[in-house]
Design a protein around this nucleic acid. Structure first.
Lengths: 167, 167
DNA sequence: CATAATATTATCATGTATGATAATAAATCC
DNA sequence: GGATTTATTATCATACATGATAATATTATG
């Protein structure tokens, strides 16, 4: 089952790292080039700050900031669809050539490319589950795939690699 | 070997997700309650924006924002230290009772707790490699560990769990 | 190629994040 | 317990992020 584990809130992250390292608000503020009052605001729930400020704080805490925009709505479908369901789902995409079970088996990459380039959310979810992400990686490496689609899926697969491996 | 793979730059993430979903700057701006000009700024490298704005953008892109402050300077040491090296490193921490090899073997958790609570960066790195993170999880669950240390290490181990499992 | 759509660049008024500062409350230390 | 340190709260001036708008450049479309 896909694990939707997200990062803790920023405020508590800052406080835990700060106190865990034995730093006062004043000292961290000095190191980060900010103010104790700002830090207090952030730690206690203020959520209107600038990325640049947060970046300086992370650095002052001996680390770095990591920001990801995670795409939630094209995760793999919960259960693996059968052939018939896939055919039904993808039918609108293959108006020029009716998709058959044999097509699915023998030309999986071709069908997958079309979904990745022109498919809707639901179609992508289904194919992700049906084919697996490794096959998607092969698909986007195909010559007929536009660079827009390629970079999109590279990003999705690259960033989802980590949380997926959590289990 | 620990993999230091960080998130891509924010600008490119936004652009890839936006174009990959076939959205114009105008349309994404409309959905996110921001402006095309702001989006253009962010996509092309502007780095002074507010977290809240970025959050709205992520949501408008069908996903969510994930922000992590990663602690870089207490990663496990590159190589596993031998007993003698550990004893040498930790000696300053055990001024009240000289640490022996037997202590290390028979009372690992106890020694580890002291390092986690009072140790410096280098000592923590070494012990992390020496004992492994599972043992650290056991250690912080011990009764004598203060909550500050506990929450600190829970955070570190929780957020590093994902990238570490990448391999 | 002409047109439409989209991206890029520039300007600007408004709202607000920011760090500085001070007062007060709470926690820590001896 | 008293003194010190730290956290919390409030105020404020300044810098600047923001969205609106328009002009210009580039790209896409038929």
């Amino acid at each position: 089952m896909y694990d939707n584990k997200s990062a803790p809130l920023i405020g508590p992250q800052i406080r835990k790292l700060r106190t865990g390292r034995g730093l006062t608000l004043q000292e961290l503020a000095r190191r980060a080039g900010t103010s104790a009052s700002a830090l207090h605001r952030y730690e206690t729930g203020w959520d209107r700050f600038e990325i640049a400020t947060l970046r300086r704080i992370a650095t002052a805490l001996g680390g770095h900031l990591e920001v990801r925009l995670l795409a939630d709505d094209i995760r793999p479908a919960p259960t693996k669809p059968g052939n018939r369901e896939i055919l039904r789902l993808l039918a609108p995409l293959f108006w020029d050539k009716r998709l058959t079970s044999a097509d699915l088996e023998d030309h999986t990459l071709w069908a997958l490319c079309r979904v990745l380039m022109y498919g809707n959310r639901k179609q992508m979810q289904a194919m992700r589950r049906y084919c697996g992400d490794d096959l998607i990686r092969s698909a986007i490496a195909q010559r007929g795939v536009d660079s827009r689609t390629r970079s999109y899926w590279e990003l999705i697969l690259g960033q989802e690699h980590a949380p997926q491996s959590t289990q």
